[in-house]
Design a binder for these strands. Structure first.
Length: 320
DNA sequence: AAAGCACCCAACCGCATTACC
DNA sequence: GGGTAATGCGGTTGGGTGCTT
């Protein structure tokens, strides 16, 4: 038994595992085949007895997890598409860490996968911005910077496919999946529970951002719908952002200037808390330190330096 | 080329809820 | 109604892998 297997287990469980000679850790191909074969013939459920009957030296829990997260035929694998990213951001803003609930709206995606995406991608950005992922300022940044940009990139990809194929995203990276899955409203439910066609994402009621075409504004986004968390001042503050998005053309080069803020470069900002920082220096430091702005997973490159500046400006304006 | 580091993800855990006897 | 088993969920973590130095 390896160290991982022993992690955090109670002595009782460990004794049980040892007496039953249960396996732990990564699944082998043979185990996968055995599980698939058994479920194909007998169906799923009753996982403990299933594990015994199939001859697997695994707990029922382990079998269930392996099947649901990996072996199920309808499980989708591969990169999270732009539409899926947008959906995750939107649904998380509404429900928080209700991963299974969020996963219901992304057919083929598991709660585990969405949770991993959130922790590795989204929380990484929060960390880069030196703020808490649950903080209002980061949520605002997601809503007014990240999500609108996702919408624009989705639109750009869709537009590209109408004229040429195969399509690429604005930054030239593959957009596999983003043009094949479809965001649809849930006004017509065909699935038992969620109105989900295979390969399509159903939107929950009053889903905001994806409905906004071609311009995503805070007012008609879900954020406005969920404005119970915002005061009047914040709403009016938010309305100032609208102009940024209403007339912004689809930008085919996200790395280029995105917001009309060039004139602000070099301005000094003073936060309400009295923290002083020089924008130019700050941006320079970010460019040096934040590799995710330039490289890495291109699907995450929805922020650029200007976005980050904008983010900090909002901290300033909203008195955070 | 090797060591160190960061990231990603599969798999685990404990706890809560539901189903069954 | 109470006890137990099964299931579901969210949080956590270690190993693999690729990148950087």
């Amino acid at each position: 038994m390896d160290a991982k297997a022993a992690r955090g287990r109670s002595s009782n469980v460990q004794r049980e595992d040892e007496t039953m000679d249960l396996r732990r850790g990564p699944w082998t191909v043979d185990e996968d085949f055995t599980l698939i074969n058994y479920i194909t013939n007998h169906g799923e459920g009753r996982w403990n007895s299933l594990a015994r009957a199939a001859g697997l030296k695994r707990t029922g829990k382990s079998c269930r997890l392996r099947w649901l997260n990996y072996l199920r035929p309808d499980v989708r694998r591969g990169n999270i598409t732009l539409e899926e990213q947008l959906m995750i951001l939107e649904l998380h803003s509404r429900w928080g860490n209700r991963w299974s609930k969020i996963a219901q709206y992304l057919p083929g995606r598991t709660d585990n996968e969405i949770k991993n995406y959130w922790r590795t991608r989204v929380q990484k950005h929060a960390k880069q911005l030196k703020c808490d992922v649950n903080s209002k300022q980061f949520k605002d940044a997601m809503r007014y910077l990240w999500m609108p940009r996702l919408v624009e990139r989705i639109q750009a990809a869709a537009a590209a496919t109408t004229t040429t194929a195969p399509a690429t995203t604005q930054n030239g990276t593959s957009s596999a999946g983003s043009t094949t899955s479809t965001i649809t409203t849930n006004t017509h439910h065909h699935d038992h529970n969620l109105g989900v066609h295979k390969g399509q994402m159903a939107l929950p009621p009053d889903f905001g951002v994806a409905k906004t075409t071609p311009s995503c504004t805070p007012e008609n986004s879900s954020t406005a719908a969920s404005s119970e968390s915002y005061g009047t001042d914040q709403i009016s503050q938010v309305s100032k952002f609208k102009d940024y998005y209403v007339n912004i053309p689809v930008n085919n080069n996200p790395s280029q200037d995105y917001f009309p803020i060039a004139g602000f470069q070099g301005q000094s900002l003073t936060s309400p808390a009295g923290n002083y920082f020089n924008t130019a220096l700050d941006l320079q430091a970010m460019e040096q330190n934040n590799q995710w702005l330039e490289g890495g997973d291109t699907s995450d490159n929805l922020w650029n330096v200007e976005d980050t500046w904008f983010f900090h400006q909002q901290l300033h304006n909203t008195g955070i």
